[in-house]
Simulated assay, not measured.
Amino acid sequence: MNLRKQLLTENDCYRSGRSLRPKGVMVHSTGANNPNLCRYVAPNDGLLGQPSLRHWNQPGTGACVHAFIGKLADGSIAAYQTLPWTMRGWHAASGDKGSANDTHISFEICEDNLGDEGYFQAVYRQAVELTAYLCKEFDLDPLADGVVICHSEGHSRGIASNHADVMHWFPKFGKTMDTFRADVARELEGDEQVTQEQFDQLMDNWLKRQAQQSASSWATPILKQAAAAGLTDGTRPQAFATRQEVAAMVLASKS
Rank of each mutant, 00 (worst) to 15 (best):
Q81G: 05
K172V: 11
E111C: 09
F107V: 12
S161L: 09
G98V: 01
Y133C: 15
Q126V: 00
C110S: 06
I109G: 02
I109C: 12
L130Y: 03
V148A: 14
E153C: 02
L83V: 06
M167Q: 14
Y124E: 09
T131G: 08
N162P: 15
T82Q: 01
R88Q: 13
E117A: 14
S94Q: 15
D96G: 06
T131V: 09
F138R: 00
K136T: 13
H104N: 08
Y80G: 04
V166K: 07
E137P: 06
L130F: 08
D116G: 11
A79M: 05
C110R: 05
I159P: 05
L114S: 15
L114F: 11
L134S: 04
A127I: 02
I149V: 10
I109H: 05
I149T: 02
T103Q: 01
G98L: 00
W85K: 09
Y124C: 07
A93S: 14
A122V: 03
Y119D: 03
E137T: 04
L140H: 02
H91S: 14
K172L: 14
A160P: 03
A127C: 04
E153D: 12
V147C: 10
D112Q: 11
G95Y: 00
P84K: 04
R125G: 10
G154C: 11
G154L: 02
L114P: 06
S99T: 13
F138N: 00
K97H: 07
N101L: 01
D139P: 05
H168W: 12
I149Y: 02
V147A: 10
I149W: 02
T86W: 15
L143C: 07
K97F: 05
G174V: 07
G95P: 08
G118Y: 12
K136G: 14
C150S: 14
G146P: 04
S94Y: 05
F170D: 11
L143T: 10
D139T: 11
F138G: 00
H155W: 13
D96F: 07
Q121P: 07
Y119W: 08
I159V: 15
P84I: 05
T131W: 06
E117M: 09
D145M: 07
K136P: 13
L114N: 11
S94K: 07
P84C: 02
A160D: 02
V148D: 11
N113A: 08
E111H: 15
K175V: 09
G146A: 12
H155E: 06
S106W: 00
D102N: 08
Y124F: 10
C150G: 11
F170M: 08
E129V: 02
I149L: 10
W85Q: 11
G158Y: 02
L130E: 06
W90V: 07
S152I: 08
R157N: 14
G95S: 03
A92K: 00
F120M: 08
R88N: 01
T86D: 15
C110W: 03
D96E: 10
W90L: 08
W169C: 06
D145Y: 05
A164M: 12
G158R: 01
A100D: 13
A93K: 13
S94G: 09
D139S: 09
I105R: 07
I105A: 04
V166Q: 07
E137D: 10
W90Y: 05
S152P: 14
K136C: 15
L114M: 13
A127Y: 03
V123T: 11
Q126C: 03
K172G: 12
D102I: 04
D165H: 14
K175M: 14
